[in-house]
Amino acid sequence: MLLHAETAGEGRDTVVLLHGMTGSAKSWWRVTGLLADRGVRVVALDLPGHGHSPRSQAMTVPDAAASVAETLDAMDIRPTVTVGHSFGGLLLAATATTGRLDPGVAVFVDAPFATRGGHDRVEVQAEYQAERASRTVDRLRAEKPHYGERDCQVEARAASRFDPETAAAIAAGPGGTWLPRPGSIVVRADPSHYVDDATAAALTASGVDVRSIPGAAHSVWYSHFDAFVAALPEVFDR
C-alpha cells in the first residue's frame, strides 16, 4: 500500500512526520511550516485509513508499518529525522524494529509501544465511528481549549476522512510490542496515559532519551508548541 504524502520546504535534511489515530498529514501544519521556514524538507504521510490514503479491512500494525517504509522507498526518501505521534509512533517503532526503514533520528511523541490486539471488530468499529462523529469543529472548540481555530478545522476535517473499518481491523488483529531502539528520543506529556513514569524509567534504562513536558496534552505540539520545539533541537535546529 502506497500512502498519500504531502511535502514542503527544501533542504539538505528531510524530516518525516507520522500522525496519530484520526489525524492526518495536516495535523502537523504548524510543525511543517516552521521546519520549511528553517530550510528543512518535510514529508508528512496520511497513514492507512486516514486522509487521502487507501483503506483496508485486513490491515495490521505490521502491514501499516510496511506501508510507511514502502511509500518512503517509492519516493526515494532517506529521512534525517522521523517523528511519530501516538499511533504514528507505534508504526515508527514497528518499522524500525523490522529493519524496513532507517528512520535517522527516531522521535516518538507520547506514543504507545504495545497493542493488545484481539478486540471485537464490531464493537471497536462502532467506537471509532462514534469518535469520528464527535470530532466536529464545535466539539473540538469546547473540549480542546488548547486548540486554535485552525487546529479545530484541521482535526475536524481529518476525522471526517478517517475510516473506522481500517482502524477496527488493526485493533482486532494480532497485538505486539515494538520498543524504541537505544538512541531514540521520546517526548511525552507529563502526566501521560501512554508513557507513564514506570515506562519512562524503563525506556531510559534501555538507552532511550525521554523528555517530559509538564502539563502538555497528548498532542504535545498543539498545547505546548514552544516547549515542544525547545525539547527537540535535533529536529528544529538543523
Rank of each mutant, 00 (worst) to 15 (best):
G9D: 08
L91E: 00
G11N: 10
G173V: 03
E131N: 14
S219C: 12
T71A: 08
T60W: 02
L35S: 01
R41D: 08
S219T: 14
D151C: 07
D46Y: 07
D13C: 12
I185F: 09
S27N: 14
T177F: 05
P79C: 07
D120H: 07
T22H: 11
G88V: 00
A111S: 15
D37G: 15
P233M: 08
F228L: 08
M21K: 10
P182Q: 06
V42C: 10
G117T: 10
A8L: 12
S206H: 12
F225M: 11
E131R: 14
D196T: 08
F162Y: 14
S192L: 05
V61T: 11
H4Y: 15
D197W: 02
V229E: 04
L45F: 11
V186Q: 00
D120Y: 08
D209A: 13
L90F: 12
L203Y: 06
V154A: 04
Y222F: 13
D37P: 05
E6C: 11
G176R: 09
L34N: 11
V187M: 02
A114E: 14
R41F: 03
E234A: 13
A106N: 01
G89P: 03
L90Q: 09
R161A: 15
D110P: 11
M75S: 07
S53F: 08
R157P: 02
V61G: 00
V68R: 03
A172D: 07
E131H: 11
R161P: 04
D13S: 14
T7S: 15
A106D: 00
P145Y: 05
Q129Y: 01
A133Y: 05
I77T: 13
R12H: 14
T199N: 08
M59V: 11
V43E: 06
V154W: 04
R55N: 10
Q153K: 12
R100Y: 07
A230P: 08
P62D: 11
W28D: 00
L17K: 10
V187Q: 02
G9F: 05
V187R: 00
L140E: 01
V15C: 06
A156P: 09
G23Q: 04
D76Q: 15
S223K: 07
A217C: 06
